[in-house]
Design a protein around this nucleic acid. Structure first.
Length: 809
DNA sequence: TCCTCTGAAACC
DNA sequence: GTTTCAGAGGAT
């Protein structure tokens, strides 16, 4: 890790470390600063890189050269193109993330910045006004004609790209002209993103003389009101762009560009603060008076946490400060975003990684200028550059999607949010009905302010949970996934015209397909898992839920050619189908990753359900994330066992959260709710605690066990995952790394493994894992950082470091 | 022995 | 992204 100078300097720094906008982003480069030039971390600069000039971000200043770098090879920063890309106090946050998660700062910046910030630093070319006349002597023919072309233009300023494409000799001519000081090249930082436009068509002329397709298209346009977007007309009139162009040329219609708002602030009907319950009032009072420390708000499902967030944010905005609201997944909570927009109007922005590059860029700038005062976003929005941050809210703070586990840095948005609050001096409000045990431990130990809302709003009771022993169902000869109790409950619910939710832990139709002749299961060719069977309109399909590999369902077993294939296990598709068979009048909707893949599909399905166009929603974990559906009275959990028995020390905690959250979807309206929890292990402590809504008892038991076994939150875990295409190289590298850790005098942590990951092969790569228990905090991470910096794995092996891993797979 | 092609590595 | 470099293979 590079060390950068802290604070302001007496003497301006001579060198800067730069993250360049080139494909080779793994490394950073050192540049000299020209005399009188100053730069700070976060500035956008233009630097020579190889033969070209590229944009880059200054990571930090150096007052001495890194060892082993030949001063003769150093180049000088061309210009400082932009400053103030980050809110005050933002840079130390990024440095802290890099330090803690053992990743290069460059990686953190890439994660934090909206993509394309650097590519928006555009290279331009201009004619030098007072160029020496003799500079043209002896130019190559291509360069001469290029120069003449540039001079013949009305203006003297061009984009580099235009020049390369348009001029004879392209880039080499430009370099030649630049060397002669006939032109100069410079960079501009994209101050304003181009406004987005859309093509519109409007009727023009009488159009009496048209016939055939033309007449039909004009007729359609007239029906649509005479003026629509080109895209809409193309779709509605089922016509082609060519025909529209012909009509345009003939003067029958006019096509023009209209500016559209890329960041239309979510609009909704205005909403006023709701009257508060006593518990909500107490919480808000404590929040106002509290010092800026983290707050854990433990409020049961349906206790009105959202209203607390809204009313806690209002005074922050009144003070002219901004608020950041983090949610696990933006698509899953359209109701929440709508409510924020309704309450705070145009000051609200939504920021997440599914936005387009342009949308993220625009939103980023609006945050910096203070135009956006409330930002609702997912994990990556924890880096939103809001100045004057007055409050950070993390809704459903226990949710695992706050942890990034794919590309480094594997940061946890909750951890980063807490640091942000500390650096900005603002409170961080963590809300959940089932707090993460680490947060809960901090709260009970007094490190966080612990506030509670133990009752639902309007005196509504928590739903009664009936545990059904599925072993007895089997004994009675019921082989269906629905117990007799659940069947009766569904019939009753349907009869009363109410709605229900069925939770199943798997999507697809069957979880695996087995040959009854040879006993082989159909497996993914790239991963060490079986394929899931999906029924699609286009035909039956097998899909790998790890790498998304897909194949048509074979008619016969690929191992022994027997046609005797059998489908095991039930996913959402099969449950929905069986439910339909059993209750023919029941209207069933599916809510899982397959049915919500389309943009805005979450909202559509939820709205459809909300309008009462379906009676039952069958879905996966997606159902657990904060849905507020007041008409739902019945919740069925088909098999709790799949959750309880995962090979992970957090399996119990996650199962408890999931069961409590699904159960919490019932009885949120005026009618009381009812939950039916089916399991083969009714005596399991997680099932028992969840069935009586007793988070405290479960948490206490689980924490005692964690302490005894030396697991988080009592010990820090660091997972090192190695992967490669060949099994031998991963094993070899993993063992080499383990020897290195064991043999090191500095390293005091405990090493578990190396061992293959639970699913050893994914997408054609073998994965092995080392787990480190680090009881020494920062000191332990520091020695690990040093060890990892020295460790060079054999060719083709990549090492991923995950500090505080959430899933041990 | 020199030249050309090609893929990989470096670019501060 | 461009440029450079090293090694293979081929022509002289």
């Amino acid at each position: 890790m590079e060390t950068f100078l802290p604070g302001p300097l007496l003497r301006p720094a001579a060198w800067v470390q730069v993250l360049v906008d080139a494909p080779a982003r793994e490394r950073t480069y050192t540049y000299r600063l020209a005399d009188g030039m100053t730069a700070a971390g976060g500035d956008v600069v233009c630097v020579p890189f190889g033969s070209q000039l590229v944009g880059g971000i200054v990571l930090g200043c150096l007052d001495q050269l890194p060892t082993g770098l030949d001063p003769g090879r150093l180049k000088t920063v061309e210009s400082v193109v932009g400053t103030g890309l980050f809110a005050p106090g933002f840079w130390p946050l990024l440095v802290r993330v890099a330090d803690y998660y053992l990743v290069p700062l460059a990686r953190v910046i890439e994660t934090a910045l909206p993509p394309g910030i650097l590519s928006r630093a555009r290279r331009r070319v201009r004619l030098v006004a007072d160029a020496a006349p003799m500079a043209q002597w002896g130019l190559s023919a291509a360069a001469k004609s290029a120069f003449d072309f540039l001079r013949s233009q009305a203006h003297a300023d061009f984009s580099w790209r235009f020049c390369v494409q348009r001029l004879s000799g392209g880039a080499s001519s430009l370099r030649e002209l630049q060397a002669r000081r006939l032109i100069e090249s410079y960079y501009v930082f994209g101050e304003t993103a181009r406004p987005r436009t859309q093509q519109f068509v409007v009727l023009a002329g009488a159009n009496a003389d048209l016939c055939g397709r033309s007449a039909a298209v004009v007729q359609c346009l007239r029906r649509l009101g005479g003026e629509v977007s080109v895209a809409q007309l193309l779709a509605e009139a089922r016509t082609t762009r060519a025909l529209l162009q012909k009509l345009h040329a003939g003067g029958h219609v006019r096509i023009y560009e209209r500016q559209i708002l890329r960041l239309a602030a979510p609009t909704a009907t205005a909403d006023r603060p709701k009257p508060l319950t006593d518990a909500q009032k107490r919480v808000l009072d404590r929040l106002q008076g509290a010092a800026p420390s983290p707050v854990l708000l433990e409020g049961v499902t349906g206790s009105g946490k959202t209203e607390v967030y809204l009313q806690a944010i209002a005074p922050v905005l009144d003070r002219g400060e901004s608020a950041l609201v983090l949610v696990p997944e933006i698509g899953l909570t359209p109701q929440l975003t709508d409510r924020f927009a309704a309450r705070f109007g145009a000051r609200v922005r939504v920021y997440h990684s599914a936005l387009s590059e342009g949308e993220r860029f625009d939103c980023w700038r609006q945050m910096l200028t203070g135009e956006a005062q409330v930002v609702i976003g997912t994990r990556s929005a924890v880096f939103a550059p809001l100045p004057k941050l007055g409050l950070i809210v993390l809704d459903e703070e226990h949710d695992g999607s706050y942890k990034q586990d794919r590309p480094a840095p594997c940061y946890h948005a909750r951890t980063v949010a807490l640091w942000r609050g500390e650096l900005a001096g603002c409170p961080v409000l963590l809300g959940s009905a089932t707090p993460d045990l680490e947060s809960f431990d901090c709260a009970t130990a007094g490190r966080y302010l612990h506030l509670e809302m133990p009752e639902r709003v309007a005196g509504r009771p928590l739903p009664a949970v009936e545990v059904v022993d599925m072993r007895e169902e089997l004994n009675r000869g019921n082989f269906s996934p629905f117990s007799a109790t659940l069947q009766r409950a569904v019939a009753e619910m349907h009869g009363a015209g109410r709605q229900g939710i069925l939770f199943i832990n798997r999507r697809g139709y069957s979880t695996f397909v087995l040959c009854r002749n040879c006993g082989e299961a159909l497996r993914c060719p790239h991963c060490a898992v079986s394929l899931t069977y999906h029924r699609l309109e286009a035909g039956d399909y097998l899909r790998c839920h790890y790498c998304n590999h897909g194949a048509p369902q074979p008619r016969a077993c690929p191992h022994c050619t027997s046609p005797n294939l059998r489908y095991f296990g039930a996913g959402t598709q099969r449950i929905a189908a069986q439910l339909g068979e059993q209750f023919p009048t029941l209207r069933v909707l599916r809510f899982d990753r397959d049915t919500t893949a389309r943009k805005d599909a979450h909202r559509q399905i939820l709205e459809q359900f909300g309008r009462g166009e379906a009676d039952v929603l069958v879905g996966t974990q997606m159902l657990t994330k904060g849905l507020d559906l007041p008409q739902v009275t019945l919740v069925g959990i088909l098999a709790a066992d799949g959750l309880l028995n995962l090979p992970d020390f957090r399996a119990g905690e996650r199962a408890f959260q999931l069961l409590t959250q699904v159960a919490g979807r019932a009885g949120r309206g005026s009618e009381p709710g009812r939950v039916i929890l089916q399991t083969y292990a009714p005596e399991h402590p997680v099932v028992e605690a969840a069935s009586i809504h007793d988070f405290r008892r479960y948490a206490a038991a689980e924490l005692t066990q964690r302490q005894a076994l030396g697991y988080p939150p009592f010990v820090q875990l660091v997972a090192l995952q190695l992967s490669a295409a060949e099994q031998e190289s991963v094993v070899e590298a993993a063992e080499a790394l383990a020897r290195r850790l064991d043999g090191s005098a500095d390293f005091e942590g405990r090493l578990l493994g190396p061992a293959p990951c639970t699913v050893e092969r994914v997408a054609g790569r073998y994965r092995w894992q080392l787990l480190i228990k680090n009881p020494n905090g920062e000191a332990g991470r520091a020695s690990l950082r040093a060890l990892l910096a020295q460790f060079v794995p054999c060719a083709g092996v990549t090492v991923a470091v995950d500090v505080d891993p959430l899933r041990l797979l």
